[in-house]
Design a protein around this nucleic acid. Structure first.
Length: 272
DNA sequence: AAGTGGACCTGCTAGC
DNA sequence: TGCTAGCAGGTCCACT
């Protein structure tokens, strides 16, 4: 599910309401990807700070000594409600506060909630180390992309997903950005010219920005913390559209597999 | 160092 | 109707 637009949409939908609230209780469901890393009761009585985002992670300061690093994995979503329903079978983390309850619902449990003393302390630092630039960072340019991709033989699609050059584009938006830039997703990353890197950097930023404006993509279960669905899926030009005509040239969109993930592209508009 | 494949887990859908 | 295979928005880790 959650690529940068979904994570940022989620953040914006509850950050203001939870900031300054005091933790009343913590409820854990089934294990997530990693253990919480602290005794839940140590969070009780602490106040919540300003929620920030780095890549697809959220950082929520709790008390003066640290905070929680959250990841939504493939199927996670966060809900923030004054009076939450009884936790269902997939509600694996509740942070009950004086302002409401923040609840992680995650059927596949690839998501995580991890205590860390600080963003620059383990385990947060370990998880965030090696992340590439934020796509809206002015330093993320065609020149940066070109320099970071030099010498790399992996396909550009996989290089984008790896997140060590630029963060935030997952399977949907990597496909969409490559379509917009007119680049075949199988092109070896290091063989993309500087001008095409410029186009790709612009496309990544534009696609992620458009998705953010539309509240992200809801394929099946994504909701923001108000329960609202995203609307980008109506604007996807290639993702999930195998066999359907390319919106630019009407050639049927193709599906292929790269690194065990589906890739969608137009064989006419996207070139090596 | 960079690239590859497996692992984690559940639910849904298409096809027989 | 019921079973099975295949697929799904992520990313860490071990191995070559």
């Amino acid at each position: 599910m959650p690529e940068l637009p979904e994570v940022e949409t989620t953040r914006r939908s509850f950050a203001d309401r939870i900031q300054g609230a005091r933790v009343l209780a913590v409820r854990l469901g089934k294990p997530l990807r990693w253990p919480l890393g602290c005794a839940p009761e140590t969070l009780v009585g602490q106040s919540v700070g300003a929620v920030a985002r780095r890549g697809k992670y959220l950082w929520m300061p709790v008390g003066a000594r640290g905070g929680l690093l959250l990841h939504l994995g493939m199927s996670g979503s966060l809900a923030f409600e004054a009076t939450p329903a009884e936790p269902g079978p997939h509600a694996h983390f509740d942070l009950v506060t004086t302002s409401g309850t923040l609840r992680l619902v995650d059927p596949r449990r690839f998501g995580a909630v991890v205590w860390s003393a600080a963003l620059d302390a383990d385990p947060a630092a370990r998880l965030l180390a090696g992340l590439g630039l934020e796509p809206f960072d002015p330093a993320f340019t065609g020149a940066h992309l070109h320099a970071k991709l030099r010498g790399r033989r992996v396909a550009i699609k996989q290089a984008l997903l790896a997140g060590d050059v630029v963060v935030g584009a997952g399977n949907i938006y990597a496909c969409e950005a490559l379509f917009e830039a007119g680049i075949d997703p199988r092109t070896p990353a290091g063989r993309i010219s500087r001008p095409r890197c410029e186009r790709l950097a612009v496309a990544v930023r534009r696609i992620l920005g458009q998705a953010l404006e539309l509240g992200g993509t809801t394929l099946r279960d994504f909701r923001d913390a108000h329960g609202m669905e995203g609307r980008f899926q109506r604007h996807a030009k290639v993702y999930g559209r195998a066999g359907q005509p390319c919106p630019s040239c009407a050639t049927p969109v193709r599906r292929t597999v790269q690194g065990q993930r589906s890739t969608f592209y137009c064989p006419h508009c996207q070139r090596r």
